[in-house]
Computed example of a mutant assay.
Amino acid sequence: MPDTKITRRETMRAEMVPDVYADQNCDQHEPRWMGSTEGDIDSGGDVGIDGVILLDAKIFPPGTKITVSEPECPDCGTVPTLQSTHPAEQIWQCECDHDWRAWANTEFS
C-alpha cells in the first residue's frame, strides 16, 4: 500500500460495559456495548448499542474499548458521507467532491 498520510477523526466509540444487574434476581452479568458518536463523545452521552457490531461483547473483558476513526478529506478536511449504498457503486462525498473511489484505488491496490 502507498505511504499516504491521511488524517483520521474519531467518530464513534464503544466500551464493553456489562449490565451487572441482569436476570430476574439482578445477580447476573450480561455483556453489552455502550457507545457514543461524534458530537456526544465528550458529553457522557453513552447509550446501549442494539445495532450490530461484529465483535461479540461476550468474548471481550469488561473495559474493552472500540474506536472508529474515519479518514478526513486531504483537500477540505471533512469526513465523507455515504451517498449511495448500491454494492457496485458506493459513493462517498465530502464538501469538495474529492474522488474517494480513485483515492481508494490508489491507497489499497
Rank of each mutant, 00 (worst) to 15 (best):
A57K: 08
I6D: 13
L54W: 15
V79M: 08
K5L: 15
H29T: 01
A14L: 07
T4M: 15
D75P: 06
V17F: 02
D19R: 04
C94F: 10
L54H: 15
Q28V: 00
P87Q: 03
P31G: 01
T78W: 09
G63Y: 00
R9D: 09
E89D: 09
P31S: 03
G35K: 08
K5S: 15
W103A: 15
V52G: 12
T37S: 04
G63H: 00
G77H: 14
I66G: 02
T67D: 06
N105T: 08
D50P: 04
C94Y: 10
T106H: 11
D42L: 06
P31L: 04
W92T: 07
Q93F: 08
M12F: 11
A22S: 06
T106E: 13
I91C: 01
A88M: 00
I6C: 14
I59W: 12
N105A: 09
G48T: 07
T67L: 06
E30R: 10
T85N: 08
Q28K: 03
D56F: 12
T67V: 12
V47P: 00
D75N: 13
D3W: 15
C76Y: 05
P87K: 05
Q24H: 10
D27P: 00
C26W: 06
S43K: 10
K58A: 13
P31K: 02
V47D: 03
G35I: 02
F108W: 12
V17Q: 06
D56K: 13
I41Q: 04
I59Y: 14
R8A: 13
T81H: 05
Y21S: 04
D3A: 15
T85G: 04
R32C: 06
R101D: 14
D50M: 04
I91F: 03
I6P: 12
I41G: 01
M16Y: 04
V68W: 11
D23R: 06
E107Q: 15
D56G: 13
P74W: 12
V52D: 14
H98E: 13
V17K: 07
G39C: 02
T11C: 07
A104E: 13
I53N: 09
P62R: 02
G63P: 01
T37A: 05
S109I: 07
H98T: 13
W92H: 11
T81P: 00
E95H: 08
Q90F: 12
G35W: 02
M1T: 12
C73T: 12
S109Q: 10
D3C: 14
T81W: 04
V68Q: 07
I6V: 15
S84P: 01
D50G: 13
H86A: 04
